[in-house]
């Protein structure tokens, strides 16, 4: 559909412009915050390819982010043959390492449907943190590894916060276009066929295994890139940076936002940022309400609210908020994936 295509291209161009312009209007710290949101956005984008398009669930994508983060940490801190890599160049490598890990998970995943895959990936999320504890001289154990502080490279004149913002959103934009092309192109249509009916897809000769495994690898690649950026921004990496609950947040955000809604992914990423990084601020904010006196040292309230919202939305709107929005506003909502 020509019209939809032009609308989507227009949307992408507008997004690019928006990304470029925002830092001029916000504080340096806000740019840093937006960068973190961007990292979660990249991870969600990857997960949406996996779940939305190949119909496989993963409760363990936090572990792939951790793979990316640790790859970057090791390459910059330990270095390769004595040569300490510059953080930027580690990003694609981190993505590839995570992607390969994803392929490794994707192969047995072929034999596991829905519930069983959720079990196994949940197991990955819970047990992954034992790996850096086991190989502690290499991966830093409980205390983790300290990376060099975030710095603007190549003598560019931006502040470090602005730098990480542009780096993250630049990569996010590129990965978004890649995902968009992937979904519109043959791989995407193939995956959609698989999602809609595996039996029909098999009988039409599509290699189910290849595409499903590829989807796993690709989504892990995205998560690895996001994890790498996160480690660079925070300048440290340890087993608790990507906890089990983050993997749950990722899936929950996808369920809430709807797997194929761009707006949903952005909102989801923002929600994860608030839950994971700003929980105590939310608690303080809630305390402003009359008669409410929550202990800010106990920032559990955002989880309570998020959990409650997740339950209520799933009960009332099975296709998530994004799905409901799309039904309400139809072609007006910017959509990432077109219905072919």
């Amino acid at each position: 559909m020509k019209l939809k295509f032009s609308l989507e291209v227009l949307g992408l161009v507008a997004l690019a412009a928006l990304i470029a312009v925002v830092p001029s209007f916000v504080s340096s710290f806000t740019a840093y915050e937006l960068a973190t949101v961007g990292m979660y956005f990249i991870a969600l984008l990857g997960l949406s390819i996996l779940t939305g398009y190949s119909g496989q669930i993963s409760l363990g994508h936090g572990a792939f982010m951790a793979v990316g983060g640790y790859t970057t940490a090791v390459l910059t801190v330990n270095g390769v043959y004595g040569h300490h890599m510059r953080d930027v160049w580690t990003i694609p490598i981190a993505g590839v390492v995570a992607g390969v890990a994803g392929l490794f998970v994707g192969i047995p995943a072929l034999r596991l449907s829905g519930l069983y895959l959720a079990l196994v990936t949940f197991g990955i999320a819970v047990s992954f943190r034992q790996i850096p504890l086991k190989f502690d001289h290499f991966l830093g154990g409980t205390s983790g590894k300290l990376l060099g502080l975030l710095q603007t490279p190549f003598g560019l004149s931006a502040s470090p916060n602005d730098w990480i913002y542009y780096l993250t959103w630049g990569i996010a934009f590129v990965l978004l276009v890649v995902a968009w092309l992937f979904v519109r192109g043959k791989p995407g249509r193939t995956l959609k066929a698989i999602r809609d009916s595996e039996i029909a897809a098999i009988s039409s000769g599509i290699s189910l295994a290849r595409y499903k495994t590829l989807a796993f690898g690709l989504s892990a690649f995205y998560a690895g890139v996001a994890g790498s950026l996160y480690a660079i921004a925070r300048a440290y990496m340890n087993p608790d940076v990507f906890p089990v609950v983050l993997s749950v947040y990722l899936v929950a955000a996808l369920a809430l936002g709807g797997v194929d809604s761009f707006v949903g992914l952005i909102i989801g990423a923002a929600a994860i940022y608030i839950l994971q990084n700003r929980a105590d601020d939310v608690t303080s904010w809630i305390n402003r309400l009359p008669h409410v006196n929550l202990n800010a040292q106990r920032p559990g309230m955002p989880d309570v609210i998020f959990g409650a919202v997740l339950i209520v939305v799933l009960i009332l709107l099975p296709t998530g908020v994004g799905g409901a929005l799309r039904r309400l506003f139809g072609p007006l909502t910017t959509r990432l994936y077109s219905k072919s």
Binding site: V251, A252, G300, M301, D303, V304, G307, L310, I311, L314
Partner: peptide, 17 residues
């Protein structure tokens, strides 16, 4: 499953609170 995950989040946060 996702509803139970939401419940897990809720209970975990509630315990913290």
């Amino acid at each position: 499953v996702i509803v139970t995950l939401g419940l897990a989040l809720l209970l975990n946060g509630l315990m913290s609170v």
